[in-house]
């Protein structure tokens, strides 16, 4: 593992209820790179993210963020990461601005009102929606608020859990553009998804997880994209490629 790696998993093993849910998983994500962890339900994708956030204990192996073991300094690790959970978990009784303001205060990030408006402009959240409580938002709108939070946090690392599930095709395209843009300015992005097409569109590299094991990795050729057909074939195969 090398290449200015921001995220590293080294022979990662995680147990849940005595069952091994991740087994010997190793990969890394460098600055400016989008790494998509692909897999079906129960493959261990979200567990991998949870391990990077220190939400789950590591049975053996290591997870490193910015070269530092996650377990050693949990708070510093989390401060270095912007995390978008699958359910875009934000507060329904707060509006977009209140949500952002609250989480930024907790992250210790100082942002003025105009910064928040700029971030919301960047994710194209309609002005008239910004003062409404999130309980009336669509999944796509919530996702935009969550991404605005990631932008405002301005961390070097982003962890995205199924970020495009439930979004319409236009919103997915917009989202991919945004993710690409963030990678282009040097962010290290680890995205877990079961959307093969989306992963191939946006990722520089793809890791295929099956039953807690990283069974294949694919890298995009210079200036090109990972071939969807190849990944799809591997993803659909009953046995490991």
């Amino acid at each position: 593992m090398s290449r200015n790696a921001k995220l590293q998993a080294e022979q990662l093993n995680v147990l849940r209820g005595g069952e091994e849910v991740l087994s010997g998983v190793s990969f890394d994500v460098a600055s400016g790179e989008v790494y998509a962890l692909l897999g079906g339900n129960g493959a261990g994708k979200s567990t991998t993210l949870a391990a990077f956030l220190g939400f789950l204990p590591v049975a053996s192996g290591r997870v490193l963020v910015n070269g530092r073991d996650v377990g050693r300094d949990l708070i510093a690790t989390r401060r270095a990461i912007a995390y978008l959970p699958e359910a875009t978990a934000l507060y329904e009784h707060l509006d977009a601005r209140e949500n952002l303001d609250y989480f930024l205060q907790l992250a210790g990030v100082v942002r003025v009102e105009s910064d928040i408006e700029i971030a919301l402009d960047r994710v194209s959240l309609a002005h008239e929606a910004r003062g409404l409580q999130l309980r009336g938002y669509s999944k796509g709108m919530r996702q935009k608020v969550a991404i605005a939070l990631a932008i405002l946090r301005d961390t070097e690392i982003l962890l995205l859990d199924e970020p495009t599930s439930g979004l319409d095709p236009t919103a997915i395209d917009e989202f991919h553009d945004l993710v690409r843009g963030l990678a282009d300015v040097g962010k290290a992005i680890l995205m877990v998804t079961h959307d093969v097409y989306g992963a191939c569109q946006v990722a520089d590299r793809i890791g295929l997880l099956r039953s807690g094991k990283l069974v294949a990795q694919f890298a995009a050729p210079a200036g090109g994209r990972i071939e969807t057909e190849t990944v799809h074939r591997a993803f659909s195969a009953k046995t490991n490629p």
Binding site: A76, R78, P85, F103, A107
Partner: peptide
């Protein structure tokens, strides 16, 4: 239940 605890902790809040 609303998964906001994960978001909360993920901001580096102990």
């Amino acid at each position: 239940e609303a998964a906001t605890l994960a978001t909360l902790l993920a901001q580096g809040t102990p």
